[in-house]
Amino acid sequence: MPRYLVERTFPDGLNVPMNDAGATAMGGVIARNAEKGVTWVQSYVSPDKGKSFCIYDAPSPEAIRSTAQKNALPVDKITEVRVLDPYFYR
Rank of each mutant, 00 (worst) to 15 (best):
T24M: 15
A21M: 13
C54K: 03
K77M: 09
K70T: 12
E80T: 03
A23T: 13
W40I: 07
S60C: 06
G13K: 05
V41G: 00
D76Y: 00
K49D: 12
Q69F: 10
P59C: 00
V75M: 06
P61K: 11
I78R: 01
K49R: 15
Y56L: 06
D57Y: 01
T9C: 02
V38G: 04
A63F: 02
S60E: 07
A63I: 03
K70P: 01
D12V: 03
R65F: 02
D57H: 03
G22D: 10
G50Y: 00
N15F: 13
D20A: 15
G50S: 11
N33A: 09
A68F: 03
E35M: 09
A34Y: 02
N15W: 12
D48E: 11
P17D: 09
A68M: 05
I64Q: 05
A23L: 15
A68P: 01
K36T: 11
T79M: 12
T67L: 04
L73Y: 02
A23K: 14
G37V: 02
A25I: 08
P59G: 00
A72V: 12
D48W: 04
A21W: 10
G13V: 03
Y56H: 04
M26H: 08
Y56E: 03
N71M: 08
I78H: 04
K49Q: 14
D12M: 09
T79V: 12
A34D: 09
S43Y: 04
D76H: 00
G27V: 06
C54N: 04
F53H: 06
E35T: 10
V16L: 14
G27C: 08
D76P: 02
P61A: 11
E35S: 08
G37R: 07
M18K: 14
A58G: 05
R65P: 00
A58C: 08
V29G: 01
W40M: 12
L73I: 05
E35Q: 13
V16I: 15
G22H: 08
S60R: 01
